[in-house]
Amino acid sequence: MAQEPPFISPSEKTYLKGLVHLKIKIMSEMPNFNYIDQLADGDEAFKSKLLQVVKNEFPLELEQYHEAVSSSDLSKIASVVHKLKNKISMLGLESSYLIAQEYEESLKQNKTSKKESFEEVLTLMTDFINSF
């Protein structure tokens, strides 16, 4: 099930290093600065500040997510997933946002569908956020 090399561009390869090939198949979108650039509209000071805040805050929320998962408190998990949705869409990840939405809905109904896909989104974001 390995992804054939010709389908990955050199820059994508660098970016995605460390991820298993399976993730590449599922994730058809990449985190980007489209929303943030549009929001900043040339204000570089604001963009840097915003990225700094994201860089500081995301790891804390990631930890909260893992703690909630360990506690098996589904409503707690739903709450953290809800919070993470904003950063997911701010990084231009539209399909991932829908995955997060589905996961949040299922948690509210005592199920955990889309959990793995969601956690792959988190990994995708972690790598991207670590890169800036």
């Binding site: 929001l39 204000d43 604001f46 500040k49 915003l50 805040v53 994201v54 500081n56 805050e57 919070k83 904003n86 950063k87 701010m90």
Partner: peptide, 13 residues
């Protein structure tokens, strides 16, 4: 707003 990232966006706007 309890998400600091969202606070920054709101402040900016």
């Amino acid at each position: 707003e309890d998400e600091f990232t969202a606070q920054e966006v709101a402040k900016h706007l």
